[in-house]
Design a protein around this nucleic acid. Structure first.
Lengths: 371, 371
DNA sequence: CTTTAGCACTCACGCATGAGGAGTGCTAAG
DNA sequence: CTTAGCACTCCTCATGCGTGAGTGCTAAAG
């Protein structure tokens, strides 16, 4: 059985994968020689295909159906056979331009990244917001909305901003609020959540008169905000491009070779994955921990729900400061070259953008920002 | 032709609509008498159904299929026949509790409202963020991120906050930034976008030394932010509950009485509507302009894409200050009583929450708690 | 030993056919 | 006006068959 993978057989594998990615229909031996004008006959191709099937790179659902790549086949293709391309310069320029138009607005970057990934790779996309491993407090502003309502604007290192309203018993002047804010800011500056909690615990024990009742209310809110923020940071996945993915033939019943019921069920499944991020659980932290573009094909990571899907992920961000993950998700029959180059480009672009934001802030905190 | 709508016929219409809403299958005369133990025979029901069909409240696709309500039938049902219910107290309490948990975080309200609407009405939901007709400037903070990068936090009336980063040529001290911010804030306070533009135009003409170059940069950014904000305010529709809607039988091929292809096509259509808000265009401003819960059934508003969907909308917000729209969207065969009561409850809840935020800002702060 | 032509075989797909059944429309009697 | 009875319509599902694409195998040629 030990079939030998000659040069030609790998070439045929490459063609089969490419062809299947393009047409979404099982590829026949005859069709290959016709389309590519191969120098040998369809019978030869059939023999080679049979060999590739022995090794586990191809299958076919029944006799008299063309060949289809297996997960292992895709894997081999991605690692050894694929032409590594980049996005065209025109595309790159267009994407850069779009990001330029929303310069300064970080939340827009995320949205835009999702949209661009989806459009360019013609599949669904996912983007997690950039997060520091540990939120570090930077600044706090208190703005009166009216008598008993105060808006708290929390600024963390890395330009992460969170706003929250806060109701109080007695009205306070703007000047009062300002003083309170700078008192608290001075005290908490550069602290992580744990540190803030410690300080507060100490202050409570010693009943330092440093903070008033109002101040303590604000600080409680800060802690609460930091907690919830860190919690949901891990969960939060922004996804987009469902529509793009749905225009792939596997979701169009008339084109899907299995029946329409399947197509719908598949679709519902896809939606659930995207919405809840179920089945992606391990992938994100994994991608955060590694460099370069990761490709997870079909059932490779065990999640049964994902068996029909592949994911192309990359980390983006600055050093160890602030990082996120972005990627493309679609049927295993997706264009890996295109997805990979898209993900690679966008992640490096986002890294650069974030880099500008953080240039002065990374490790050496020499600028200190003392008020 | 001129069929008279007797009491009994209307009762039958009511039963047919309710039954169809419940089962999603055409309702047969025989089935009605059996299920409800009516005091008359199926033949009588058939006659009445025929009469209701003459008036245009029912149809059937072919002989030997049960009756199905038309858009007009649903309309009549909603306006005259429906039992007007409210959400159960337990449900209300649960919902209030969820909102309580995210008190203070306005963006979370919107997300939560969408999720709750979807879950409670078992259909898709849409929520627009609360917007003032005119953005009014309130406050501005400048926070240094690092040497050449400044974070601008804009606060508008009604607790609307927008943040943006801004790169500058020369580093500035925190004190410098603070003074600049308060200079600009003082000058622009309470202004609408147009007014800000006027002030700047005058200042430029007269070359008042009041603002420095840096200040002008910030103000340009303020104007730009206000513009884009107002523009995208109209567009921005937050939608949720696709999955809930998709669990309705019209989207499940094996249950849909037409073939599976249709179900998928329908689904794709629904997705497009929800994502882009196409087909909803006129509805939102319309809902903003009117009070109470609006029900738009099927093709009533002309948009062909929406022919198979109904929308239940309500305005929420405070007086003329700050308003948004929220609602439920689903197949025409949705439970109108439930959707309407859900939408009514959530909109009044959101109005109250916003009311608290604005109490001091609107004219006479009155507990608008009556629904 | 590899390649190739030839051919039988397999299996999905499309289409027609027919039985079964649900539900109506009509008619005539109560 | 109501209702029983019945013919009629038309969907649904299962069955069967022809068709064609594509393979697997075999035997001969390179």
């Amino acid at each position: 059985m030990a079939a030998i993978l000659t040069e030609r057989r790998l070439f045929i594998l490459k063609l089969v994968v490419q062809q299947f990615i393009e047409t979404a229909t099982p590829v026949a031996s005859e069709a290959l020689v016709r389309k590519f004008g191969l120098g040998f006959s369809s019978a030869t191709v059939r023999n080679d295909m049979a060999a590739l099937e022995d090794v586990g790179y191809l299958t076919h659902l029944h006799t008299s159906a063309g060949r289809v790549p297996t997960d292992a086949g895709y894997r081999f293709f991605v690692e050894n056979l694929m032409d590594r391309t980049s996005l065209s310069l025109a595309e790159q320029r267009m994407i850069r331009h779009q990001f330029y138009q929303v310069r300064g607005e970080l939340d827009q970057w995320i949205q835009l990244a999702g949209a661009v990934l989806a459009r360019t790779a013609q599949n669904a996309s996912l983007v997690t917001p950039p997060r520091a491993e540990q939120l570090r407090f930077k600044n706090l502003e208190l703005i009166s909305i009216h008598d008993t309502m105060v808006l708290v604007v929390l600024v963390f290192h890395g330009g992460i901003v969170k706003q929250q309203t806060f109701s109080v018993d007695t009205a306070r002047s703007a000047e009062d609020l300002r003083r309170s804010a700078s008192r608290i800011s001075d005290c908490l500056i550069d602290m992580t959540m744990c540190q803030v909690e410690d300080v507060i615990a100490q202050d409570s024990l010693q009943a330092t008169p440093c903070f008033g009742e109002f101040d303590h209310g604000v600080i409680d809110l800060v802690i609460h905000a930091m907690q919830t923020f860190e919690e949901q940071a891990r969960e939060q996945i922004h996804s987009d491009g469902l529509l793009e993915m749905l225009s792939q033939p596997e979701f169009i019943p008339s084109l899907a070779r299995d029946d329409a019921e399947r197509a719908v069920e598949r679709l519902r499944r896809a939606l659930e994955i995207l919405k809840s991020g179920r089945g992606l659980g391990q992938l994100i932290p994994q991608a955060l921990a590694s460099d370069g573009v990761q490709v997870i094909i079909g059932g490779e990571h065990g999640e049964d729900e994902m068996r029909e899907y592949s994911v192309v992920l990359a980390r983006y961000g600055v050093g160890g400061t602030v990082t996120g993950v972005l990627g493309v998700i679609g049927p295993t029959r997706m264009s890996y070259p295109r997805s990979i180059s898209t993900v690679r480009y966008i992640s490096s672009l986002m890294s650069n953008l974030l880099g500008d934001l953080y240039a002065g802030e990374t490790r050496p905190p020499f600028e200190g920002d003392h008020q």
